[in-house]
Simulated scan of single mutants.
Amino acid sequence: MDTCARFVPDINVYSIDECFLYYGKQSSTPQEGWEAVGMQVRKAVGREVRLPNCVGIGPTPTLAKVANHAAKKIKGFNGVAVLDIKEIRNAVLSKLAVTDVCGIGNRLGRRLNALGINTAWELANRDPTQVRKEFSILVENTVQELNGEVRHSWDTVRGAKKEIYNTRSFGGRITVFEELRSALASHAEVVAAKLRKQKSLTSSMTLFATSSPHDTEGYFRKSYFHHFAVPTSDTRNIFKVIGGAMPQFYKPNVRY
């Protein structure tokens, strides 16, 4: 997750081995192309974490999941699939069973099969309004997402929150000790609020900060792990950890 977070303004941890990287509502195709971006992420995870992985890229969370499935299962994608062209998207959807779509379980899949909906492409071509009447608004939203309209928020695609991350990149580069501590503290506030919202406590936390992997002066990364003797959701307790970690965490002349 730390490695993936370097490449994106926002990350959502979906499960222990899967995450969504969010590039923003107004993001345009990067100059090198989305496939090249996906390959950069895939190679970085393979090189640094030594884990085989696949990357799926799409305009909605559901299509990103579909793309990830295609990257793993459909020959020719080589571990990275991008569904930014309608013709490619439709070709992939036609090869996927309807139960391969995120949110369509076996029981729901059998009901859809009974109506002649066997593939993801056939689901995408159903009338969303009719689908809502026959099933639910969640299935309607899935149909809309398969057609490129964002309907799911992170809250509706997030898995069980046994880990909470807050890893948004800073607005600008940080080089000053106090600015780095303040930035980490702002992340801590968000995490503590999320803990309290779901009525949870944490027994451990990890801090990390990096420079950009594209900087000419070389890449720098520092992480710090802390175990709480008593589990907590108190922001003040997390602030104390940040304060204690800063002297070994901060390095002069690094543009965080």
Rank of each mutant, 00 (worst) to 15 (best):
K162F: 06
L195C: 08
T206Q: 15
A160K: 05
H214F: 15
L201K: 05
E149L: 01
E140L: 02
E145F: 03
R173M: 13
T167K: 00
Y219R: 04
A193P: 02
W154Y: 14
L201G: 01
S223C: 05
L146F: 07
R126N: 12
Q198I: 03
A124W: 00
G172P: 04
I117K: 04
E140R: 01
R151G: 07
V143M: 05
G218D: 05
N118I: 08
V101I: 13
S211W: 05
V139C: 08
G171I: 09
S203N: 13
E189P: 03
D215I: 00
L112H: 11
A185H: 08
L195I: 02
E217L: 01
T216N: 10
R158N: 10
Q144F: 15
H214W: 15
F220M: 00
T167G: 01
V101F: 08
Y224T: 01
K199D: 09
S136T: 12
V131Q: 07
N166Q: 14
T167R: 01
A160F: 05
S182T: 10
L184Y: 08
E163F: 09
L108G: 01
G103C: 00
E217C: 03
L138H: 03
L93I: 03
K162D: 15
D155H: 14
T129Q: 14
V101W: 07
F177A: 06
E178M: 06
G172C: 04
H226N: 09
A160Y: 03
K133R: 14
V150D: 13
N125C: 06
A114S: 14
R126G: 08
G218T: 04
K222Y: 10
R107W: 09
N90V: 05
T129L: 12
D155T: 11
L123E: 12
R168W: 12
